[in-house]
Design a protein around this nucleic acid. Structure first.
Length: 545
RNA sequence: GCGCCCGUAGCUCAGCAGGAUAGAGCAACAGCCUUCUAAGCUGUGGGUCCGUGGUUCGAAUCCACGCGGGCGUGCCA
């Protein structure tokens, strides 16, 4: 890319052992040129020269290609500013049109395999709105991994074995029994949602009172699991997500992986028995302050043991990168899991855990209460019905996962310029409108596909082209750090650049065929960038709005 | 108490591997539709970057200590 080109020019001219401080950036102020470097500032001390003198010296001796760099100037304390040749920018437009839906795809991780695990909600009930952040993030990050070249396995891990599933069975059973006897006691910590009654009714419709006097809860558990999983999959489907692997906890028992891990811990003397439970030694030097139970006195493992076994399984599958996405309420447990992997003698360095903070939902100024206990749950499906899939996806991905998210339902629902989703999508729809119009009403424009880009030259046009050309490096930045949210301000800039261009520059004009063609090409290039960006963050690119 | 995260414009947030005058969207105010979608464009106002110290040519950004908020700190997941 162009930044590397300039960096390589600098390296040809002057020796610097430590290049980490030297940066080539796009200056905030466009009057400072298209690119700028702080090289002279950084190197001045080492070489004992004044930054400005060094800058002049450097810029005089650079041997650059005139087709790429038009001019060089010195400014401020010693920044070297580069103005690029517009021919360079026109080549970018050609490249975008040529690579089309692949433009921006990187090869930095070609040939590598990545596993990304997220959602992983247990089938004890439908997904609630708060799950949305995890779901949306994972979707976008999985896309980013693919764009950076990885072969990606999308995976969902769920617990179909532990005490939560027993609780589900008891809850469904109680609702079933209440059909015959309204006074049948409901478990104190049972799942109170109405869906439990729906499951009980389904069982009743099938089995009538056959199960009334049975104390086998298996059928209640399986029916509940099945019902809930269908609800979950339905919503995931709405969100446009499909998983390659559904990994269930019980398989870890069947294949003996839990037992194997316990034996390994024993072998490495990492565990001891106390009060009838099996404890894992947690070392202070690793930041832990007390030991943790991995097998309860009842003989059942705590959640962390199968979590560790599961991750060891992923490690053994040989991925180059393993990504986990958790809410901040799991912020401590993932550390235990990584620790367990290491202490069992496996390598955890390929595991990258992304922790996102919690979400608050608001309708205008009013916050939406979400408590599981009172059945006052705002389900993800309701949120999607309220604001639409695109707004749901967009609002969850919009912010840095590290910060708390305020999700304004009214704003997300609003079909007006207030809503940032529409601003972006509208730019795409507008372009499609122009393309339709060109096809239907401007035959002359399709005569000869040759485009003379030198017809382009207005401020708006050049500004838009420059923005489009930054797409690959934005993808690079986003994918290296697994940060899809950074794509959004960029796409906003693309849309804004396009809207300004549109406002000031008539695209279709029969009296100006060559100009029209080149502007039409610019429109197509913009459409490609927008739709590629939308695909990554996981929203649709509408043709009409 | 301890651990992790956060504190930037009226609101929601970018910027935080140190760099030129701290940005965006919304809200406020003032303009722009006989022309490819006004779900748009143009302009204006708006800041103790939580506080106090430190590191240096330079700090919103790094360090220390406070203050405020969120989440953890289970033989729940």
């Amino acid at each position: 890319m162009i930044k590397e080109y300039i960096l390589s020019l600098l390296k040809e001219t002057i020796d610097f052992d430590d290049a980490s401080q030297i940066k080539v950036d796009i200056p905030k102020d466009p009057s400072h040129g298209d690119l700028s470097t702080n090289a002279a500032l950084v190197l001045s001390k080492k070489l004992g020269k004044k930054p400005r003198d060094l800058a002049i010296e450097l810029s005089d001796s650079l041997k650059y290609d005139n087709e790429i760099i038009e001019s060089i100037s010195i400014a401020g304390p010693g920044f070297i500013n580069f103005k690029l040749n517009s021919k360079y920018f026109f080549k970018i437009v050609e490249k975008i049109l040529d690579e089309n839906s692949n433009y921006g795809k990187l090869s930095i991780n070609s040939g590598k395999r990545a596993n990304i695990e997220w959602v992983s909600a247990n089938p004890t009930g439908p997904l609630h709105a708060g799950h949305g952040r995890n779901i949306a993030l994972g979707k976008a990050i999985a896309n980013l991994l693919e764009w950076s070249g990885y072969n990606v396995v999308r995976e969902y891990y769920y617990n179909d074995a532990g005490s939560q599933m027993d609780n589900l069975a008891k809850s469904v059973h109680a609702r079933y029994m209440q059909i015959f006897n309204p006074d049948f006691p409901f478990p104190e910590d049972g799942y109170s949602g109405n869906y439990i009654k729906d499951i009980a009714n389904l069982i009743y419709n099938r089995k009538k009172d056959e199960l009334k006097s049975s104390d086998n809860l298996e059928i209640f558990k399986l029916s509940g699991e099945d019902y809930n999983f269908n609800l979950i999959k339905k919503v995931l489907n709405l969100m446009g997500i499909s998983f390659d692997v559904f990994f269930n906890e019980s398989s870890l028992y069947k294949t003996g992986k839990i037992e194997e891990l316990i034996n390994r811990f024993r072998e490495f003397q990492m565990v001891y028995e106390k009060d009838g439970a099996l404890w894992l030694k947690m070392e202070k030097t690793e930041g832990f302050d007390k030991d943790k139970v991995i097998v309860k006195s009842t003989g059942e493992p705590t959640y962390r043991l199968p979590d560790m076994a599961y991750h060891i399984d992923k490690v053994k599958r040989g991925f180059d990168l393993i990504v986990d996405i958790f809410g901040s309420d799991h912020g401590d447990t993932y550390k235990e899991v990584l620790y367990g992997i290491k202490k069992a003698g496996y390598d955890n360095k390929n595991i990258n855990v992304i922790i996102h903070q919690m979400v608050t939902f608001k309708r205008g100024d009013e916050s939406v209460r979400m408590s599981k206990r009172s059945d006052n749950v705002y389900y993800l499906e309701e949120l999607i019905n309220d604001v639409g899939v695109d707004a749901t996806q967009f609002f969850f991905v919009m912010r840095n996962p590290n910060t708390h998210l305020d999700f304004d339902i009214e704003l997300a629902k609003d079909q007006s310029d207030k809503n940032p989703v529409y601003y972006l999508q509208y730019a795409h729809a507008r372009i499609c409108g122009i393309l339709r119009n060109a096809q239907q009403n401007y035959d002359v424009l399709s005569d000869n596909p040759e485009v003379d880009f030198s017809k382009l030259g207005t401020e708006d046009e050049l500004c838009l082209i420059k923005t489009l050309g930054r797409f690959p490096e934005i993808i690079h930045e986003c994918s290296v750090n697994l940060e899809p949210y950074k794509l959004i301000p960029y796409l906003n800039e693309v849309a804004s650049g396009f809207h300004s261009f549109y406002h000031n520059n008539r695209v279709l004009d029969s009296d100006n065929v060559e100009l029209s063609k080149s502007r039409l090409a610019l429109c197509r290039a913009t459409k490609i960038i927008l739709s590629n960006g939308f695909r990554i963050i996981g929203i649709s690119a509408p043709d009409k709005m």
